[in-house]
Design a protein around this nucleic acid. Structure first.
Lengths: 103, 103
DNA sequence: TTGACGCATGTCGAATTTGACATAGACTAC
DNA sequence: GTAGTCTATGTCAAATTCGACATGCGTCAA
């Protein structure tokens, strides 16, 4: 399962660039990726709650459906910045963000 | 004071690119900037708590003193990504981030 | 089947963000 | 004074991230 996790991460585009121990992420790498996944999931939840399609939300903020999809999947090509801006565009407050992050 | 705030923001590099009402930010613009400022302040606090200089922390994560300074000032040239990565490098947990965000 | 709809994934040139560097200001201590 | 330390600010080429587009997959209805 360690290997599975690694595979999934590398599939998502992460160079698990740790020193030597080729199975593990540093604690902060782990936190960072965890954070992104949580925010991606939060975007999807909020979007569905508002009954919007990816196309609709993307249009509303001058982005594109493909970016939206990648964001929700926490693809390595999307920044934390973009994830947060999607959430804010969905009407999330700082408190909502905090909740999504802290889990 | 409204004008003061606008000046400060534009000084920091923000094009307050709102529709027409030339005094205000949209709620999400405001939340976004607020968020960045909070994270910048959190970086400074945590760094000082650990008694590190900007040079030391920057070196520790392969960044530079100038980026650190801009990050703490929430300069528009630094991303949320970088702010968060500084915090994680300082040992902050997701819960710590949530606290810094929610205020 | 065919078509439409929603989402995923890969690629590209353009835009933004990066670390690095130079330099300056503020503050000590000598 | 001036030398040392810490932080702020501007600039740049290189790296990353962006929106856009094409295309594929699954599902549902006609």
């Amino acid at each position: 399962m360690k290997q599975d996790k690694r595979n999934r991460l590398e599939k998502a585009g992460w160079r698990v660039g740790n020193a030597d121990e080729l199975l593990g992420l540093s604690p902060e790498e782990a936190e960072y990726i965890d954070l992104r996944i949580r925010l991606g999931e939060a975007v999807r939840q909020l979007r569905k709650k508002k009954e919007l399609t990816q196309v609709e939300l993307a249009a509303r903020m001058g982005s594109s459906q493909s970016r939206m999809a990648k964001a929700e999947a926490a693809d390595s090509s999307v920044s934390l910045d973009l994830l947060v801006r999607y959430l804010l565009a969905l009407g999330a407050t700082r408190q909502d963000l905090a909740r999504a992050i802290a889990g």
